[in-house]
């Protein structure tokens, strides 16, 4: 069986479903504008800040967005941020997988918030840390399945070890952002969400 083809096709179908369901949702103007703003923020922070590769607050911002605004919102922020910023940085086979990875990062943060109302700082930081690795691993998975044969543990480790340093930097950066500034940013975004009042819930912020 051609797993690469199946994975690619299912991703395409998944995207179509997501996009169509977004179009069908009733969404206020304020939400549209906020989604564009957060995507713009996440997208622009892909501009690397330094010689240290992969220290970008993008994943952090996507996670924060999902955590505060909910899983679907988080997914869309990651999705659009990648789609648009790759327009500047260059599209390639990585684009759909990055869209998926960042989308899932936002989605999972939204789900996390459903189960843990008041997670500790270190808990969130570890969550962000893990996404540093998961992010590339989703892309690598397709790479592995499509282009590498045979699919053994050895080949798996080989594929995944090459990006280890980059992933570690990404994860450490995420950890740092979340640890030092997570609470701060979450509070700001919560306050803003409250101001927007687009989800009418009486919530203490």
């Amino acid at each position: 069986m051609n797993y690469g083809l199946i994975l690619g096709l299912s991703l395409l179908i998944l995207f179509i479903i997501i996009v169509v369901s977004y179009e069908r949702r009733k969404i206020s103007i304020k939400e549209i504008s906020l989604l564009a703003t957060l995507s713009g923020l996440a997208g622009v922070s892909r501009v690397p800040f330094s010689a240290i590769p992969n220290v970008q607050p993008t994943t952090f911002l996507v996670i924060i967005s999902g955590y505060v605004l909910g899983p679907f919102y988080g997914f869309m922020v990651g999705f659009i941020a990648t789609l648009v910023s790759n327009g500047f940085l260059g599209h390639g086979p990585w684009t759909p997988w990055q869209m998926l990875s960042w989308g899932l990062a936002g989605l999972s943060a939204g789900i996390l918030n459903k189960f843990f109302k008041n997670p500790s700082r270190i808990f969130l930081s570890i969550f962000a840390f893990l996404w540093g690795f998961l992010f590339d691993y989703i892309m690598n998975l397709w790479h592995f399945i499509t282009f590498v044969y045979p699919h053994t543990l050895k080949s798996f480790i080989l594929v995944y070890s090459t990006s280890f340093y980059f992933d570690l930097m990404h994860a450490l950066g995420n950890f740092g952002f979340m640890y030092f500034f997570g609470k701060d940013f979450i509070t700001i975004l919560k306050r803003f969400k409250y101001r927007l009042n687009f989800i009418k819930e009486e919530e203490e912020v």
Partner: peptide, 15 residues
Amino acid sequence: LNKLTIISSMTINII
């Protein structure tokens, strides 16, 4: 996909 295109073009502006 009119919402998505508007969001994308706003995002381009914002970036």
